[in-house]
Amino acid sequence: MNARLAAACAATLLLTAVLTGCGPADAGGSSGAPKPTSSDEATASPEASDSPTASPSPTPPSKAVALPTDCRAILSADVLSQLGETPLNDAAFGPSGVGSDGSLTCIWADPRADTTRLVTVISRMNRGPALDMLNALVANEGFSCFTPEGGTRCEKTWPNEQYPVTDGRTLFWRDDVLIDTRYSNLAPSGYTSAIVKSIFG
């Protein structure tokens, strides 16, 4: 077993142990971390209450999953209706859309608003680095993780430091694809699940 494989196995064992202790049943438990809502609110949807039934596959997919190229096409009609007239990828917020590495950045925000925004980056990330990052979020920042829809999902919310609104972050990893959403005062119900369904079917 080479060093990389050994490290991946160790990370897998660590995340498995972490997921056992931070699933939905423990979301409001003794850890002191706030019970997450997601970018499916923006995240915690009905599947968040289910017991974990899957963990990341120990082997990579035989064929790479295609990354999306259209921020609207990855969302359901219901989610789009919740976003309403919120501008998408306004130039005031910098680069967005498809990047040179194939990643997709979607920025839902009005430049006239002080805080209301939803930013999602969909990119490729191998299993080892993904598990290391998710483990670090759990250990160092109090994120809660569970395993819906064949992947691993971690999330956390917190009060905005300046305005009386809720901020949060939701990450979903599966088959070397990472969906990373940060939001403030804009959390459409079903948002992350709609993206997962669009990418993975």
Rank of each mutant, 00 (worst) to 15 (best):
N2Y: 08
A6Q: 14
A7L: 09
A11Y: 03
A11W: 01
T12C: 10
L14C: 13
L15Q: 07
L15C: 10
L15P: 02
A17G: 15
V18G: 03
V18A: 11
G21Y: 05
C22I: 08
A27R: 15
G28C: 14
G29A: 15
S30M: 10
S31E: 10
S31A: 12
G32N: 10
G32P: 02
A33T: 10
P34L: 08
S39Y: 04
S39C: 14
A42I: 12
A44H: 12
P46K: 14
E47V: 15
E47M: 12
D50E: 13
T53N: 11
S55M: 12
S55V: 09
P56S: 05
S57Y: 13
S57Q: 13
P58K: 04
S62V: 14
S62Y: 11
S62A: 14
K63L: 07
A64E: 08
V65Q: 03
V65H: 05
P68F: 11
T69G: 13
T69I: 09
C71M: 11
C71S: 10
R72A: 05
L75C: 06
A77M: 10
A77V: 13
D78C: 05
D78L: 08
L80P: 06
S81N: 11
Q82L: 07
L83H: 03
G84V: 00
G84R: 01
E85P: 00
E85F: 00
E85Q: 10
E85D: 12
L88N: 13
A91C: 04
A91F: 00
A92C: 04
F93A: 13
F93Y: 15
G94K: 12
V98M: 07
S103I: 05
L104F: 07
L104S: 01
T105N: 03
R112G: 15
D114F: 08
D114N: 13
T115Y: 15
L118T: 03
I122P: 04
S123R: 15
R124P: 06
N126A: 13
N126T: 04
N135G: 06
L137V: 08
V138A: 09
E141V: 03
G142H: 07
F143M: 12
C145A: 12
C145S: 07
T147V: 06
E149K: 09
G150R: 01
G151Q: 03
R153I: 01
C154E: 01
E155M: 15
K156E: 00
N160H: 13
Q162V: 12
Q162T: 13
Q162E: 15
Y163P: 01
G168C: 00
G168N: 02
G168R: 01
T170W: 09
W173C: 02
R174W: 02
R174D: 08
D176A: 14
D176V: 09
V177F: 07
V177T: 03
V177P: 01
L178D: 01
D180V: 06
T181D: 02
N185P: 01
N185F: 12
N185C: 08
P188S: 06
S189I: 08
G190L: 03
Y191E: 06
A194P: 02
I195Q: 02
V196C: 01
K197L: 12
K197H: 15
I199K: 09
I199Q: 04
F200C: 05
F200V: 05
